[in-house]
Deep mutational scan, measured.
Amino acid sequence: WVPTKREEKYGVAFYNYDARGADELSLQIGDTVHILETYEGWYRGYTLRKKSKKGIFPASYIHLKE
């Protein structure tokens, strides 16, 4: 896992994603996520609506905010 280059990196989910394991994070369309790390097509972070739950999710489900 590699920390993100920018201190504040955010994105928005444009697909729903159902977590398949305890380390994964479920997403709903429109969720804003804070991205902490990246690795081979995956991000690690949390949604702003539930900051206490961190997990991994596919990068392809996220539109990055500039």
Results as ranks from 00 to 15, higher is better:
23 D>M: 07
61 Y>A: 14
41 G>W: 03
10 Y>L: 07
33 V>N: 00
9 K>R: 14
45 G>K: 00
41 G>P: 00
63 H>L: 13
64 L>P: 04
3 P>I: 05
66 E>R: 12
59 A>S: 13
57 F>P: 02
43 Y>W: 03
11 G>F: 03
32 T>V: 15
8 E>Y: 12
52 S>I: 08
2 V>S: 10
58 P>N: 02
28 Q>R: 15
14 F>C: 15
53 K>M: 08
44 R>A: 04
60 S>R: 13
17 Y>K: 00
31 D>F: 12
14 F>G: 08
3 P>T: 08
22 A>V: 11
47 T>R: 15
45 G>Y: 08
36 L>W: 03
34 H>F: 15
62 I>E: 01
53 K>S: 07
38 T>H: 10
50 K>Y: 13
33 V>W: 03
39 Y>S: 13
12 V>Y: 09
42 W>M: 01
10 Y>W: 15
24 E>I: 05
8 E>G: 11
22 A>D: 13
61 Y>N: 07
24 E>Q: 09
32 T>N: 08
49 R>H: 14
36 L>A: 02
25 L>F: 00
31 D>W: 08
35 I>D: 00
21 G>W: 06
57 F>R: 01
36 L>I: 11
9 K>D: 03
8 E>W: 10
4 T>L: 10
27 L>R: 00
49 R>L: 08
66 E>A: 13
40 E>Q: 11
18 D>C: 12
50 K>N: 15
28 Q>H: 10
6 R>M: 11
9 K>Q: 13
59 A>T: 06
66 E>C: 14
58 P>H: 05
4 T>R: 05
28 Q>N: 08
11 G>S: 02
31 D>I: 06
51 K>F: 08
39 Y>D: 04
54 K>H: 10
28 Q>A: 10
43 Y>F: 10
47 T>S: 10
42 W>F: 04
2 V>K: 13
5 K>W: 09
50 K>G: 09
41 G>I: 05
30 G>M: 07
30 G>R: 02
17 Y>T: 00
21 G>C: 12
56 I>F: 12
6 R>Y: 11
27 L>T: 00
51 K>S: 10
11 G>E: 04
33 V>L: 05
26 S>G: 04
43 Y>T: 00
17 Y>G: 03
29 I>P: 04
30 G>Y: 03
64 L>I: 13
43 Y>H: 04
23 D>K: 06
46 Y>C: 09
54 K>M: 11
63 H>C: 14
19 A>S: 06
40 E>H: 07
23 D>S: 08
50 K>V: 12
50 K>M: 13
27 L>S: 03
7 E>K: 10
19 A>F: 02
31 D>A: 04
22 A>Q: 12
18 D>H: 13
64 L>H: 03
33 V>C: 04
34 H>R: 15
55 G>E: 00
59 A>N: 04
51 K>C: 15
52 S>R: 09
61 Y>C: 15
34 H>P: 00
33 V>T: 00
17 Y>V: 04
9 K>E: 09
45 G>I: 03
21 G>E: 09
4 T>Y: 08
64 L>G: 02
3 P>V: 06
40 E>V: 07
5 K>G: 15
38 T>R: 14
1 W>V: 07
40 E>S: 09
47 T>M: 09
8 E>S: 11
10 Y>I: 11
38 T>G: 06
59 A>R: 07
56 I>L: 12
54 K>P: 08
14 F>V: 15
25 L>D: 03
36 L>H: 05
17 Y>W: 08
2 V>E: 09
3 P>W: 06
56 I>C: 10
41 G>F: 04
12 V>I: 11
47 T>I: 15
50 K>F: 10
14 F>N: 08
41 G>M: 04
42 W>I: 01
52 S>H: 13
4 T>P: 10
16 N>G: 07
46 Y>S: 04
22 A>P: 15
27 L>V: 02
1 W>D: 07
40 E>L: 11
31 D>Q: 03
48 L>V: 09
24 E>T: 03
20 R>E: 08
43 Y>D: 01
44 R>N: 02
36 L>F: 07
63 H>E: 12
33 V>G: 00
12 V>Q: 05
25 L>S: 00
61 Y>F: 10
15 Y>H: 14
22 A>C: 09
7 E>H: 14
45 G>H: 02
18 D>G: 04
43 Y>E: 01
1 W>H: 08
31 D>E: 09
27 L>W: 03
65 K>F: 15
48 L>Y: 09
58 P>D: 01
8 E>D: 10
22 A>G: 10
27 L>D: 00
55 G>Q: 04
19 A>V: 01
58 P>C: 07
32 T>G: 06
36 L>K: 01
57 F>Y: 00
62 I>A: 01
41 G>K: 07
39 Y>Q: 10
13 A>D: 02
47 T>V: 15
59 A>V: 08
59 A>E: 02
5 K>Q: 09
35 I>G: 01
20 R>H: 08
62 I>T: 03
55 G>L: 02
28 Q>E: 10
13 A>N: 00
14 F>S: 09
55 G>S: 02
47 T>K: 15
54 K>C: 14
47 T>Y: 03
39 Y>M: 14
49 R>I: 05
42 W>V: 00
13 A>W: 05
58 P>S: 03
13 A>R: 02
26 S>V: 03
37 E>M: 06
23 D>Q: 09
31 D>C: 06
25 L>T: 03
66 E>V: 12
8 E>P: 09
37 E>A: 11
19 A>M: 02
52 S>L: 07
41 G>Y: 05
6 R>T: 13
3 P>C: 10
27 L>G: 02
26 S>A: 04
64 L>W: 05
9 K>C: 13
1 W>S: 07
12 V>C: 11
37 E>C: 10
53 K>Q: 13
39 Y>L: 11
35 I>Y: 02
19 A>T: 02
10 Y>V: 08
57 F>C: 06
34 H>T: 07
63 H>P: 01
38 T>Y: 14
52 S>A: 09
26 S>Y: 05
12 V>P: 02
35 I>P: 01
33 V>M: 04
26 S>M: 03
6 R>P: 14
43 Y>I: 05
10 Y>H: 09
42 W>G: 02
26 S>D: 11
34 H>I: 15
58 P>K: 03
48 L>H: 09
6 R>K: 13
20 R>Q: 12
37 E>S: 08
9 K>A: 11
51 K>A: 12
37 E>L: 06
3 P>E: 10
47 T>A: 12
16 N>F: 06
24 E>S: 01
11 G>M: 05
13 A>M: 03
57 F>N: 06
66 E>P: 13
63 H>M: 13
41 G>E: 07
62 I>V: 08
60 S>Q: 13
31 D>N: 03
6 R>E: 12
36 L>N: 06
23 D>C: 13
40 E>T: 06
50 K>S: 14
29 I>C: 09
18 D>Y: 11
2 V>W: 11
62 I>M: 01
30 G>V: 04
32 T>K: 12
16 N>Y: 06
57 F>L: 02
60 S>F: 07
36 L>G: 01
42 W>Y: 05
14 F>W: 14
46 Y>P: 01
30 G>N: 01
54 K>L: 14
64 L>E: 02
